[in-house]
Amino acid sequence: MPALLEVKNLQVRVEEREILHGLTLTVNAGEVHAIMGPNGSGKSTLSHVIAGKPGYEVTGGEILFKGEDLLEMEADERAAKGVFLAFQYPVEIPGVATMTFLRTALNAQRKARGESEFSTPDFLKKVREVAASLNIPQDMLRRGVNVGFSGGEKKRNEVLQMALFQPSLCILDEMDSGLDIDALRIASEGVNALRSSERAMVVITHYQRLLNYIVPDHVHVMSKGRVVKTGGKELALELEASGYAQYEDVAA
């Protein structure tokens, strides 16, 4: 069985500037990987390229997802195949009720996979269940997507979608940014509840703090567009003590 996600020697440019210079990463189902690194090391670029955001040019290497060439797929196809990106800054969509958005997205994914659409009562039941576990009040679901949501509510809304769509790969881009301790705990509990042997997570963060809540199996340090060190969860603690400076030289 192939690994869930294989990134091989990935080279990526944005507007003529190379951001990733041959990045390699293998993630198996059931694993949680943390990717740490300073600003500008290419962490977010990696997450965007995996999810298929326009504006990035892949100049070398490949990305396989369940053995398939991910780079050949449109972003919505990737989503239907099970790639989920929890955004660092989830966007607001005024006038589109969260509930409508969730149902439209879920049914679009199911349709793309050749599955039947959820019936309305089944869907509502499912959403209410998951929302309750994440402390998301019903009126939030009636409001426009992320409109007027606090930072914590926006992140919980991301976790809500993750729980609904049941993707096999979850990429969490700086999930801790803008969250206080309580909000971080609730969101992390939501994420932990989704850990399973069929699913993998890639947790992108600057800080070790998040990894107290979502404990990784593997930690990778990125610097200047490459993975420069890989270790277990203790690597994150080491970094917290010693900082990223030591790796700048390794990458150079």
Partner: peptide
């Protein structure tokens, strides 16, 4: 209509066209 909003929708499984339709219909809802 921002590329970020469209990408957010597409990342959730909507096609580009569905995404535009959704955003525009939200815009004119009132």
């Amino acid at each position: 209509i921002s590329e970020d909003v469209l990408f957010y929708c597409v990342q959730r499984g909507l096609s580009q066209e569905e995404a535009v339709g959704l955003v525009v219909n939200g815009f004119v809802k009132d």
